[in-house]
């Protein structure tokens, strides 16, 4: 079934917007419920059954609040920053392969697009933090940059390792190569490189750091920096940053699913479809929430040491090992 191009495009744009909005709203609910359960309390219960209408109440509250630009702030950049943090995350949805035929714009360089637009995120948080004219916000912004620069390196090294195995940047093609059972997923391709599970773990750690999630949430270290780069944002300005954080988590977990866990492929080789993609996606997102409420925040130099002294050497090692194995073992 193929719609004419304009309608297909409109459907995908609307679908991506609705998907991001729904996810942002209900992942907050999942986060709060999850946090509550991990801490043995009920979580939101008042609004709707099981607190299911809580996100809607939150959204109405945020929308009705005034957006205040603090005096002395750079008003233009201050207002622009939430849009700049949201737009790249939305654009990445154009290349995510949800199903065999469910990609808005299959591109031969899809993975590169996701990585490139992902790198704009840092710039936006930086601008927001700087434009706020707030000491806490500037400290947080400086932390975000050193963190993101440090973790982009192992992330890209791991992605290069994977690219040498797949030989393509097309996300749909990468998923197609993993057809036929869970032992053909990239994370279990032990005959190509016995360290594949390690690369997946590195990818996941870098994902947590790049999306500024606990235990790496140096950007919004609420116990030490008030709310970090978002301190001065009120109302929907803060809301958009919040939505962008969840949109980035969805994008990151979708990439992990497509790259390592076989995307829409079924683990048993039959019955592949969008359902499997969503199942793996939400399992990964749940893991992200789980980690956030289980581990305390790391110290800042601990975080940088982890990247520069542990993750980068290991990912360089897997890169070397993979290239050697690919050269000598496979014809």
């Amino acid at each position: 079934m193929t719609l004419p191009e304009p309608y297909r495009l409109a459907a995908f744009v609307l679908g991506a917007l609705a998907f991001v909005g729904l996810n942002a709203a209900y992942l907050v609910w999942v986060e709060r419920k999850g946090a509550a359960r991990f801490q043995r309390r009920p979580g939101p219960t008042e609004v709707g059954p099981e607190g299911l209408l809580q996100p809607i109440a939150d959204a109405i509250k945020l929308l009705s609040k005034q957006v205040i630009v603090p005096p002395g702030a750079d008003a233009l950049l201050f207002r622009l920053a939430p849009a700049v943090v949201m737009a790249p995350a939305l654009m990445t949805f154009a290349v995510l392969p949800f199903g065999a035929h469910l990609t808005a714009r299959p591109m031969s360089v899809g993975l590169l697009l996701a990585v490139a637009f992902g790198s704009i995120n840092v710039m936006a948080i930086l601008l927001g933090g700087w434009a706020s004219r707030n000491k806490y916000a500037i400290i947080s912004a400086a932390r975000v940059v050193s963190q993101n620069v440090a973790y982009e390196i192992p992330l890209l090294l791991v992605v290069i390792t994977l690219l040498m195995i797949t030989g393509t940047l097309d996300l749909s093609e990468i998923v197609r190569q993993q057809a036929g059972g869970f032992w053909r997923w990239n994370v279990f391709k032990l005959w190509v490189n016995p360290l594949m599970p390690v690369t997946f773990v590195i990818f996941f750690i870098c994902l947590l750091a790049e999306t500024n999630r606990a235990p790496f949430d140096m950007a919004e270290a609420e116990s030490e920096l008030v709310a970090g780069a978002f301190t001065e944002y009120a109302g929907m300005g803060f809301g958009v940053f919040f939505m962008a954080e969840y949109a980035n988590i969805v994008v990151g977990c979708a990439l992990a699913t497509a790259l390592f866990l076989g995307g829409w492929q079924s683990p048993f080789g039959i019955g592949s479809g969008v359902g499997w993609f969503l199942l793996k996606l939400y399992l990964l997102i749940f893991t992200v929430v789980w980690i956030r409420w289980t581990f305390p925040r790391t110290q800042f130099y601990g975080l940088l040491n982890l990247s520069w002294k542990i993750l980068i050497p290991i990912s360089l090692g897997t890169l070397g090992l993979t290239s050697v194995l690919l050269k000598f073992i496979r014809p």
Binding site: A116, S119, L126, W130, A141, V145, N148
Partner: peptide, 22 residues
Amino acid sequence: ALMEILIYIGAVCVTIVFAVML
């Protein structure tokens, strides 16, 4: 095009802003 975004925005601009901030 994508390398332009990845390198010039993701690396060069971020490095400049970082230096300014420090």
